[in-house]
Design a protein around this nucleic acid. Structure first.
Lengths: 133, 133
DNA sequence: CGGTATCCAGAGAGATACTG
DNA sequence: CAGTATCTCTCTGGATACCG
């Protein structure tokens, strides 16, 4: 069932601020989904996440977490220990997002060979040599 | 059901070329989903799509369609009429993508007020004046 | 430990002009 | 009609250094 009955000449402003577009752009960024999936298993502290995601920069981890926090998908809790520790975990809203996200991931895993095949075919058709250096 | 049992220290290269990440970035771009949804209703010709999406540039429409074609989600067919016309339509693979995409869209529509509320709350907490110029 | 602040490179995206 | 070619600008993402 598709939710939006979408007018045909899609209005400019309406699309720009469409909440669906908005969320898609968020999950389409480089790290958000990975962070959500990790936090879906258990809470993490900041540097714990940093270690778990080998190649993320501190800056991008912070930005990603802030974005998720702003949207109410992740909860940030500071414990006044020494040294201080900050725990991140999914909110119920964040957990509920895992459901459609998993569905999409499953679709990809189910069809990834089709996509790979299409890419090869397209490259071959254009005369590209896929095996070239 | 989640498809990927995901190792904890997420390996650098593995993540970079993960097919799921790959597809998420595609649907996270500005126009892809809109084009897929429109083509989900019926085939379109190039300029017909251009008119249907008020604010897209010719260049971005071309690029978006090429990307979808490369991945085997859209079929491009040229009719040697005069003037020439080119029709775009979803492949079966493209149509199957509409299912998980709709699920995600439905999630967003269901929870958009929660997200909006979280954003307001977060802005207020930070002392931002949402009504400011 | 858990961040900010700054600076910088590259991809994404748009405007415009031209073409088979 | 259905594009391609340029040029430009913004925005994302990364490296580095510093702070409570």
């Amino acid at each position: 069932m598709v939710s939006a009955p979408l007018p045909d000449p899609v209005p400019a402003e309406e699309y720009e601020q469409c909440p669906v577009t908005d969320v898609l752009r968020r999950v389409g960024d480089k790290w958000t989904v990975l962070v959500v999936v990790l936090l879906g298993r258990r809470p993490y502290r900041f540097n714990e996440l940093h270690r778990a995601i080998a190649t993320i920069s501190q800056r991008m981890l912070t930005r990603t977490l802030r974005g998720l926090e702003t949207d109410g998908l992740v909860h940030r809790e500071v414990f006044p220990t020494n040294p201080p520790s900050v725990e991140y975990r999914l909110t119920p809203l964040g957990e509920s997002l895992l459901v459609p996200l998993s569905a999409l991931a499953d679709w990809v895993m189910e069809h990834r060979t089709d996509i790979a095949a299409a890419r090869s075919a397209h490259a071959a058709e254009r005369g590209d040599d896929v095996t070239a250096p």
